[in-house]
Write a protein that binds this DNA or RNA. Structure first.
Lengths: 246, 246
DNA sequence: TCAAAAGTGTTTCTTTTACACCCATGC
DNA sequence: GCATGGGTGTAAAAGAAACACTTTTGA
């Protein structure tokens, strides 16, 4: 494969994939072949491809993830983020061929996207250049390559900022969910506890939720009602934002 | 000049420079040599240069603007934004040499920055590839090259978003200013009127202002007090944001 | 002396916060 | 039957919005 033929030079994409499971916010990471370091799924932009389209493709190719909320949040373009020694190591470990090392030795700027996905819909599967693919709690991040730690941190900050004045939940939660599940998601992202009753009132006030007749049975204790998002109002709120802050 | 030697391939930078004058928000535009189209000051990133540093340099080289607030807000990476016919025209008009046209015929993604500058501190001066350099009201934008209209529009949206939960004013206003001047700036960016008294109370509540003993004399009517920003609290608010919304 | 902008305070309304009781369910 | 989480409402506090009168100044 001739990278120089196919891809836009010096530009990569990295996608921080957020999922929510067991009251924890997780990111989907790939373990580099023959190495003890992990990485956010990334890739390159084809010469005739929109960067947004490239991000969607990267998500699919490298993490088998489709149909997600995806948002560009920052271009990482410091000169320090490149590391020739790291590429030499990749060649050494046969992660990349010697022939293609010229491509990887370029200076890259990388465009950061974050993706919100429904945890249960993703079956982590390593691609051909990864040893494994796993959900990892934000509180237990392993050693990461290059500046991927920073890329994740900044994605989390961007996500928090978005949460402050836009709805979040679609794509992170299953189609039907309880008010508590939604609240715990908010608490997890914000890193603080929220009053159960006040949360419910405020959230319902936005009108983005539809209360269903069903309840979530099977759990211990009283069966809570299920909700789903009102797509139309949800999307409108995504565009316009709220006028209040969490 | 060999662009390929010096610059990072396929990556450009465009800076939307906002200034505030006579109750209007303005942008600094360059008129392309021998053409009737205008452009936002832009440039390229050197191979050994941080993108943020490149933005500062571009601002200085192309618009003689220094010491400003500068913020990366979006990477424009759609495939449609490139236009070979446009480059041919530039060669035809001798804005760029035939020799360098290969560089300009690349597909570029461009990184958008917006800058906030003090209007009176800028003396618009065209650089060597521009006919003129002028402040233009946002409401009277001339015909712009490529997707520069979109680049400006998105910069304004990003600025409005920032205004909602961060202080704005430093760099856009002179060191000393009246409360009315600050309010009119806010009104201009937001595109709506704000109550004079409520604005003052809320703004003072943030603690980012220092009331001076001086007043602005010379104008008709009662002389208003002057204020300046409390740098320390201002910068802290820039970092942390407010918890309220305008 | 008057028009126009500036300074200042109060009342009302809305939003946010804090908090308590009853209900349903599985163990 | 009891521990646990779920449903619901209200009172107090804080914040936002609406609003009016007096002061200063140049013309």
């Amino acid at each position: 494969m001739d990278y120089f033929e196919i891809y836009h030079p010096g530009l990569s994409i990295d996608c921080v994939i957020f999922g929510f499971h067991e009251k924890e916010l997780k990111v989907l990471l790939l373990k580099m072949q023959n190495m003890d370091k992990w990485a956010v799924p990334g890739g390159f932009v084809k010469k005739d491809e929109d960067v947004d389209t490239a991000a969607v493709r990267v998500l699919k190719e490298r993490a088998s993830v489709t149909d997600v909320y995806l948002k560009q949040y920052h271009l990482f373009g410091d000169i320090t983020r490149n590391n020739s020694a790291y590429v030499d190591k990749l060649v050494d470990k046969k992660v990349i061929t010697d022939k293609s090392s010229l491509w990887f030795h370029q200076r890259f700027v990388t465009l950061g996207y974050y993706a919100l996905v429904e945890f249960s819909k993703v079956t982590p599967a390593p691609d051909h250049i990864s040893d494994s693919c796993e959900w990892v709690s934000l509180s237990e991040l392993p050693e990461l390559i290059l500046d991927h730690q920073q890329i994740i941190t900044k994605a989390l900050h961007a996500l928090r900022k978005q949460l402050k004045f836009q709805p979040i939940g679609k794509n992170l939660l299953p189609e039907k969910f309880t008010m508590t599940e939604l609240r715990v998601l908010y608490e997890t992202i914000l890193g603080e506890e929220l009053d159960r009753r006040n949360f419910q009132r405020k959230m319902l006030g936005y009108g983005i939720l539809t209360k269903l007749k069903e309840t979530r049975k099977g759990g211990a204790h009283k069966a809570p009602f299920l909700y789903c998002f009102n797509e139309e109002i949800y999307n409108r709120s995504l565009e316009n934002g709220f006028n209040t802050v969490w």
